[in-house]
Design a protein around this nucleic acid. Structure first.
Lengths: 207, 207
DNA sequence: AGCGGCACTTGACGCAGATCAAATTTGCGC
DNA sequence: GCGCAAATTTGATCTGCGTCAAGTGCCGCT
């Protein structure tokens, strides 16, 4: 769908910032492989992590709000991506009704995810949030054909904590608890999910 | 911009549900006067409030994700709104580049607000969240030319609590605390903001 | 291989906010 | 205006998570 307008084959190293808050929105990005974190910097200079971007997902959608990016996005791993310049995108939107629907779908989906996240987090306790985070990650990986039960976390505990509104110690304790109960195997950033149903249940509401 | 496609003059009474999760997205709504709450119903049957809709704001944007609405929206007060049928909207998107940009802007803005909300809530304590809620409401009212310092809450404490991830008792205590400190006058659902700067500061990060 | 630093884990303790319970206020129908 | 049910406030207690602090293990560097 987007193929016609794509600039292919770009890549960056871990730690590199793809877009910065306040920059004019020159292009839309789609991640091909690797992962990134989306965050903003608060007045006090601390990072607030809004979410993580996996292969197949878009970067910079909030830029449509006012023609400027509103968060920072930086690579957590070596990242391949493609880039659709806005100028080109606008021309294509003129001609391709399918592309219009596709872009609206992406935005609607992102909006739904953001709202759903807010809801989930607002209600659940620490373990429920971590379970939800893992179940969500697992599902998104599966959607791209990657293993939903064996994966490596590309972000550190502090990033997860910021994203979930917890502290890094609490993340660590939750993971240890899941390990103790036989739901996970955890070795540093490598995760094996042993009881996906248990995680999913805890993450989406059942006590 | 949307004027050409609008069906005007519809209205509903408080408590009426405008759209339901799962229904096909037949139209986009814009609220003209009154207010509504956007929420979803969890597996256990409890409501999770995602946000409140004020005059000038759109209903049903997440529907773009898959052609179906994903939350329920119901009126908190007598509500006037207009309705743009999707069929009509798609035709117009074909012809009006300005309208395309406007719809994308609305979605981008909604996305940004959802993400920003998540960030704000994840970090702040109970009083900070309530302050943020009031400051946000105040700003949105001002944007529509309504008084930012004298207003009536159209939602009950439980709805605010659900939205902010707190309990209704905590909402009540926070309001009482602000009253005691001379930042607000509170009488049931009528609010007078006496020190908007104090609320805004507490709501956006300064301890 | 050995060292140093950083990411993570684990423990002890205190407090903000949840929970349970009761009193008070508000607003609506008659 | 009266009375009742629902909404809100206030109080007392309990608990999960944040905070501070001390390990432990992992990885890259020389």
């Amino acid at each position: 769908m987007l193929e016609a307008a794509v600039e292919r084959g770009r890549q960056v190293l871990p730690g590199v910032t793809l877009v910065r808050a306040g920059e004019p929105m020159a292009a839309l990005f789609v991640v091909r492989s690797g992962s990134a974190k989306r965050y903003s910097v608060t007045l006090e200079g601390t990072e607030q992590v809004h979410g993580f971007i996996l292969p197949g997902e878009a970067v910079g959608l909030e830029g449509f709000a006012g023609g400027r990016y509103l968060c920072e996005v930086s690579a957590l791993e070596a990242l391949h991506y493609c880039r659709v310049p806005m100028r080109k995108l606008e021309q294509l939107l003129e001609r391709l009704p399918g592309l219009r629907r596709e872009i609206l779908r992406l935005l609607g989906q992102a909006l739904d995810e953001a709202q759903r996240l807010h809801g989930e987090l607002a209600q659940r306790d620490a373990r429920g949030r971590v379970a939800h985070f893992l179940a969500d990650l697992s599902e998104r990986l599966a959607r791209r054909g990657l293993s939903p039960t064996e994966f490596r976390l590309s972000m550190n505990r502090a990033d997860i904590a910021s994203h979930l509104g917890l502290t890094l110690e609490t993340i660590s304790r939750a993971l240890s608890a899941f390990k103790r109960e036989g739901w996970l195997r955890v070795r540093a950033r490598d995760i094996s999910v042993l009881r996906p149903e248990a995680l999913a249940a805890l993450g989406s509401g059942c006590a």
